[in-house]
Design a protein around this nucleic acid. Structure first.
Length: 304
DNA sequence: TATTTAACCTGGACGC
DNA sequence: TGCGTCCAGGTTAAAT
């Protein structure tokens, strides 16, 4: 599933292929893929045609392409400060393909370019992802940085040089809820999904059901270090691919799945102590952990 | 206000 | 072979 390492891999690929190119055609084949663009598919297409892609940015699992207008002579194109925002959801792919390449089964949006080169395709089997046009707004924590309005509520990710470790620790240690739930809250820390939450907790020897309020500052610091390590390792491996649902912009799989210690390893021996990894239901999804290395918290005493 | 739950969605795997 | 059920999980609105 696309989490920070997978999205960063896609961002780097798009940066290479798309920067400086001008959009010449837009085909929206599935309206659900643009459902968050409230003005509708036709408005999105009209605004994108003629726009020049300046860069490819990312925060957490969100990608966006800042756009520049073609100039006053053309009625088409985006407003000043607009950008194309993309979220891959669970199964979204952004592929850079030759225009004559066969159409993918779940191809929803395709962008052609004025230079006649490779086109950009948004493919999404489970349709949780999508694209929209949005305005850039000043980031809440640094005035010289802009993010799309849709992304403004998302916290920085742990690989962001401006991530505030102290603020994260304070906010996490105020939480009277499960640690794993907190790690999945993109408003607290972005980029972490089910896979890297489980892996980070395994590395930190922490059970996902520990309450945030029970953690000492040193434990949070240790956890944050492990989160950064696992994310960086996964970025270096090109992300995690369990099936064909996650690939980079060239359609190639990542290989971090070979390095996973807990996620997807239910029944296999823990690489650290040999105890079989256990899988349990948690938050309408699954959690994998070592019942020996990651001791569950003691049940809280009930108030009379 | 803080926290938790459910719905959205598709296709592969599995059991009968 | 066909049908029904379960599972995967990021985001967010609604409920508690």
């Amino acid at each position: 599933m696309p989490e920070l390492p997978e999205v960063e891999t896609v961002r780097a690929g798009l940066q290479r292929w798309l920067s400086g190119r001008t959009i010449a055609s837009v085909e929206i084949r599935h309206a659900r893929a643009v459902r968050r663009h409230l003005a509708g598919p036709q408005d999105l297409a009209a605004r994108l045609i003629g726009a020049r892609i300046e860069a490819v940015s990312r925060r957490g699992k969100y990608l966006w392409l800042p756009l520049s207008s073609p100039g006053p002579a053309s009625p088409a194109g985006p407003d000043r400060g607009e950008c194309l925002v993309a979220h891959l959801g669970m199964s979204g792919q952004l592929l850079v393909q030759p225009a004559d390449a066969p159409q993918e089964r779940h191809l929803h949006v395709r962008l052609g370019f004025a230079d006649g080169g490779r086109e950009l395709r948004f493919i999404d089997q489970r349709t949780f992802g999508g694209v929209l046009l949005d305005h850039l707004v000043p980031a809440s924590d640094r005035s010289d940085e802009s993010v799309p309005g849709q992304v403004a509520h998302i916290a920085r990710d742990p690989l962001d040089p401006y991530f505030d470790d102290v603020l994260f620790s304070v906010r996490l240690r105020r939480r009277d809820s499960a640690l794993k739930r907190a790690l999945l809250d993109q408003g607290l820390v972005s980029g972490i999904g089910n896979i890297y939450a489980d892996e980070s907790l395994w590395r930190a020897r922490l059970h996902g059901e520990r309450r945030g309020v029970t953690l000492r500052p040193t434990a949070v610091r240790d956890l944050l270090g492990h989160i950064r390590d696992v994310l960086a390792d996964a970025v270096a491996a090109g992300g995690t691919s369990f099936d064909a649902l996650y690939v980079n912009v060239n359609g190639q799989s990542g290989y971090f799945d070979r390095s996973l210690s807990a996620y997807g390893r239910a029944g296999e021996p823990c690489p650290r102590c040999g105890t079989p990894i256990r899988r349990v239901a948690f938050m309408n999804r699954s959690s994998s952990f070592c019942p020996c290395c990651q001791r569950p918290p003691r049940p809280r005493a009930r108030k009379e």
